[in-house]
Design a protein around this nucleic acid. Structure first.
Lengths: 337, 337
DNA sequence: GTGAAAGCGCTAACAT
DNA sequence: ATGTTAGCGCTTTCAC
């Protein structure tokens, strides 16, 4: 516990060289006589020396720690977890480690975590934002910390951003429902404050407008406090006389709930359903569930690469990268009115 | 980019106090006159000062960084992701951040990541191990880094460990199959080198032994190179004349494949299936899938707390905590031979 | 090619 | 209650 780790000076003494030579060897710098390299390496092994990167970053020009931060909605949801993996893979190739945290749609938590990560001097941050104002980051960027936003753009803060074609993806899917003859198409999504929720909802409205279907607010609901609220809303919706013949769900938890409720009412073969975001096993359900999905791997990869480009000094205008969604049409989306 | 962040000295000058007073205020230490606190806080705000925790840890007794490392099998698989979240929550309550990494059952990757995290001077590590020998950690622990193993124990390295009742959980489930009259019960699991795989398989054998059912190696297979191998094995298994009447799958990807293959052969209502590990939507499939699941949240919480206890100086013998599994019996596990 | 000295931003130890 | 000084382990700078 209290024994302190050996330092470069200890290694220098053990190997009969100097501090600086040890530093050169440990950092793989060229221009050290091979026999000294061997001596140093022997001493490193003997003393079980471990380089202290954090001490080095203190003096190093630019102060880089080779650590980045990743802020997700919730590390345990499948979308966040997949994003995490793709960021990790891209970072790994560069010897960069990643600090992670869950924001739970809480703007205070966003600020706390960003502060916590900056206190640990991450080189940059990849953020799925949970707040509605990011101008507090201006000072951080000036101080050298880079930011890339993913899934949702920053607000009041121009920055590199990677998003999906939320609106277009939904529009395409809803259009297929319309082409099957559906007119009363319900839409259940997240609160409009959430960028992706707003975009997806916009796609739904565009599809209706394109087909000249009158908008019916009775079958639209945005924002649910919890899963139970989704459930009771669906039950009410399906109990109406003039119930919808198709449902579009703008998020995976809502989709899940819709599957459950349709089933419990034995309507799963009668009412069409298309959801946004992937759902494991969706193709094995009866009926198989139609989904609009995002290419998470590509999104994470682009975001991480963009962050590294900025850290490497890229000075071009901030980029808005948009990654196409995929429409997996399956039986639940092919049910006719 | 190149502008350097303000330091405590800058804040001291700006506020007309000294370095040490700023340090006291920033660290929330008591015994500073309220008016000085105000002055310092004003200067902090004005200069946009951000405390540098890594610099502090260099001099601080014990050298703690308030950062821990978490090594998982793969951050994007549901088990790892859930574990991650529970560790994060427990760590958050203490102001500790977490560095994460995926090992992919690769022992080299385990050493690399542990070295990388130690180079960043994490206070401790929570590890789902992927190697077969951990005596290389003895020196690290002596140097002050603490370790807790989760899901699987360390080898050749005595340490705190949190595991589930793998064997007992499988035994109970297989016994219910036997009680329904099944005799030819297939077992498909992971390679025996993986601790949990071995334990689960042991539970299967115990259940057979207890019922005096002769062991039949024809229906047992441990270890698959990839998903396709699982699939082809299952197809062969189910094409036999004397095919099994029930299947136990020791891991979620194998369970998934079993669901798919049974369905494609239209045997999903004829052959019983029970799997290990949770599967989202399992209760919505037809038939609903019986599963033996782990209480991941509890496991992560215990492991993290144990790590903090050690960091706080707990000197008692290393603990082996075992968390009970749960058997969710559903239709697929109730099919009779 | 190698080393000595200074100093990164902070906390510890010791004044005052 | 506040300030001063040394030094954590490293990289930089510059001298040899």
């Amino acid at each position: 516990m209290n024994r302190t780790r050996p330092t470069m000076l200890d290694v220098a003494k053990e190997s009969g060289t100097s501090l600086k030579t040890v530093s050169r060897v440990v950092n793989g710098e060229s221009g050290v006589k091979p026999e000294l390299v061997v001596k140093v390496e022997r001493a490193v092994k003997k003393l079980n020396y471990r380089h202290n990167l954090t001490a080095g970053s203190l003096r190093r020009l630019g102060g880089r720690t080779k650590t980045i931060g990743l802020l997700l909605e919730n590390v345990s949801n499948p979308f966040s977890a997949a994003l995490h993996r793709s960021v990790e893979d891209t970072a790994r190739a560069r010897g960069v480690e990643v600090l992670t945290g869950s924001l739970d749609e809480d703007s205070n938590r966003e600020r706390e975590l960003i502060n916590g990560f900056i206190a640990r001097r991450v080189d940059g941050l990849i953020v799925v934002p949970s707040s509605e104002d990011h101008k507090y980051l201006v000072g951080e960027r000036k101080a050298g910390t880079q930011f890339v936003f993913i899934d949702r753009p920053a607000l009041n803060f121009t920055s590199d951003t990677v998003t999906a074609t939320n609106s277009e993806g939904v529009e395409e899917a809803v259009k297929t429902l319309i082409s099957l003859g559906h007119v009363r198409i319900a839409y259940l999504g997240d609160f409009e404050q959430i960028y992706t929720a707003k975009e997806r909802y916009e796609g739904y409205r565009k599809a209706l407008r394109g087909a000249k279907i009158a908008f019916d607010k009775e079958v639209v609901k945005l924002g649910f406090e919890n899963e139970a609220a989704v459930e009771s809303h669906l039950i009410a919706l399906l109990s109406r006389e003039n119930r919808p013949t198709a449902i579009f769900t703008g998020q995976n938890i809502i989709t899940l709930m819709a599957i459950r409720v349709l089933r419990s009412k034995n309507l799963h073969h009668k009412i069409a359903l298309i959801g946004f975001d992937d759902l494991p096993l969706a193709d094995l359900l009866d009926p198989a569930i139609s989904l609009v999905t995002q290419d998470i791997h590509v999104m994470g990869n682009i975001a991480t690469q963009l962050l590294f480009d900025r850290l490497d000094g890229l000075k071009s205008p901030y980029e808005k990268r948009v990654v196409p969604t995929t429409f997996a049409q399956r039986a639940s989306g092919l049910i006719r009115p």
